[in-house]
Design a protein around this nucleic acid. Structure first.
Lengths: 299, 299
DNA sequence: TACACTGCATCGAAAAAATCGATATATATA
DNA sequence: TATATATATCGATTTTTTCGATGCAGTGTA
């Protein structure tokens, strides 16, 4: 059991030490002189020694009081640091924010967003992490990241999901393989549909878009990234579905045709998710809104 | 107005942060869980932000909580430093002690005392200052020194006087001037009585010892120190009164006779004085006693 | 799916403390 | 000696802290 001085006692102590007067100190501390006297007395009792020598009209520091001053100052200073740190959090979207993003979004969305976000929230430091949806959901649930950016639908119990945008899929195929202006899901049947490797949600979402089981998955060609997948298509190994952001903001090489689907085009929802209990939820909503607006401008 | 966290709140906070559990922390802090919860809640309200994220069964630090930990630790550490400093004062006669001593005592008593005191109170650091009684009384009264060692009687309002020893005066005269075994005050009449310069209490005490006004003070020879005074005597300029410690522990050169007075010999009292309000008064009594004992042994 | 369990939040009552105003006490000052 | 100034102390009151009991929300289990 280890008794410590009260913050208030230390404040009283320093005030008396500064003014060398109990009454002046009481005034400064906005308490009556009796209260302050009692506070100092309590501290002195706790310490077992006097901090001040009261000699009639004059107050004098004892040697203990003398040596205690620097420690007392530091004690209050660290206390003030804590409140200051808290105050600085009052401006939303400042400080660090750990964000996880899936690989089929990160390379396309980030170049559009980061410069603008940087401008809009100069005191926000985004710590980014690229993982597949499954890993992200786990990281977020256990608190390793604050919020995750991924595609819905995805199973994530206990996380709050907020949709940010809905994007159509496009058909990507070798230039010489397709000449119509639009495509329909049915056109895909019998085609060699290339997919990302197991674990990417885009694989599931693409499959879900097809009412059929694709003819041959050609597992040998399962790509680890969209960029690779596009390479496969370019070299004639098959066709694939690309999300809109990959089409608009990714590098589509020569020799590939991007064909829109007839309405209703297949699509995926993109949005954020975070723990329902996260104390910064309001900031997350704010950030989501800000990004939504940015994307609207970016077209 | 600048509100600071309470010491207790910080203790609670650190305990929860350590155990990542309110209940465990409550146990460690010897309070109920509800008390601890309320304490944390109050701190969070004060800061305007949560320190912990409560997610069902698990508790997680917020970013504010994370960054607040080091500050919180330091805050408590400085508080503990103060109590530790106070505790270390519990051993009496440790630390610094500022002592003033008059010039007619210092050179004779200190060599006898310092080595022994050093041995007896190894953690006591004596800061010595040699001044005349008047200066010492002022220094002590205004708090520049803790205690003073001087000769009584001396006017010192508001200071507590504690006599330590009583010492006889001896007659010091040129060897060829005196051949009796003892002296009496009356023998001094008509002699050239040499005295210390104005301001030394020994001057007054010596004069007081004489029931008469000495024949010629020969102000030209007023000495600034006893050692000088003895030189004067040695060279035949007159006689003087020496306190016992100067006789026993000083250097009495050849050619000087030291003659005791017939009973009742004139004498002076030597002792300490300090402010009545001084918080270390008990230590001073202790030190006085210790020195008394040392002198008894030194004989 | 229902049910008990675990852990934090909340509530009202009781205990502890902090604070105040008034007054006592001590010390300088006139 | 009277007066002014400064701290200590006292009793009453308000405020805060603490507790025990209970509520509530996730978590694990039958």
């Amino acid at each position: 059991m280890d008794y410590l001085p009260t913050t208030k006692q230390i404040e009283y102590f320093l005030s008396v030490a500064e003014h060398m007067s109990f009454s002046k100190a009481a005034e400064e501390c906005h308490v009556t002189q009796s209260t302050l006297s009692a506070g100092i007395a309590a501290l002195e009792t706790l310490l077992g020694h006097n901090l001040f020598e009261r000699a009639g009209r004059t107050v004098r520091l004892t040697s203990l009081g003398e040596t205690a001053i620097p420690e007392a100052r530091k004690m209050l200073e660290h206390g003030r640091n804590i409140t200051a740190m808290a105050r600085s959090k009052n401006q939303p979207l400042t400080g660090t924010l750990k964000m996880g993003i899936i690989p089929t979004i990160a390379p396309y969305l980030l170049p559009q967003l980061l410069p603008n976000l940087q401008k809009q929230f100069p005191n926000l430091s985004l710590q980014l992490q690229e993982e597949q949806s499954g890993a992200l959901v786990e990281l977020c649930t256990k608190g390793a990241v604050d919020m995750i950016l991924l595609a819905f639908p995805y199973e994530m119990p206990n996380l709050r999901q907020v949709e940010m945008l809905s994007e159509k899929f496009f058909l990507a195929c070798p230039q010489d393989r397709w000449h119509k202006k639009t495509a329909s899901i049915d056109d895909l049947e019998g085609q060699e549909l290339l997919l990302l490797e197991e674990g990417h949600c885009l694989r599931e979402h693409a499959l879900a878009a097809c009412s059929f089981r694709p003819k041959a998955k050609k597992d040998a060609f399962n790509a680890t990234s969209l960029a690779t997948l596009i390479q496969f298509v370019q070299h004639g190994y098959g066709i694939t579905l690309l999300p809109e952001m990959a089409v608009n903001w990714g590098n589509i090489p020569k020799g590939i045709n991007i064909v829109p689907f007839k309405s209703p085009a297949p699509q995926r929802q993109v949005g954020f998710a975070w723990r329902k209990s996260h104390p910064r939820e309001k900031e997350f909503m704010l950030l989501t809104k800000a990004i939504k607006d940015l994307l609207k401008k970016a077209g």
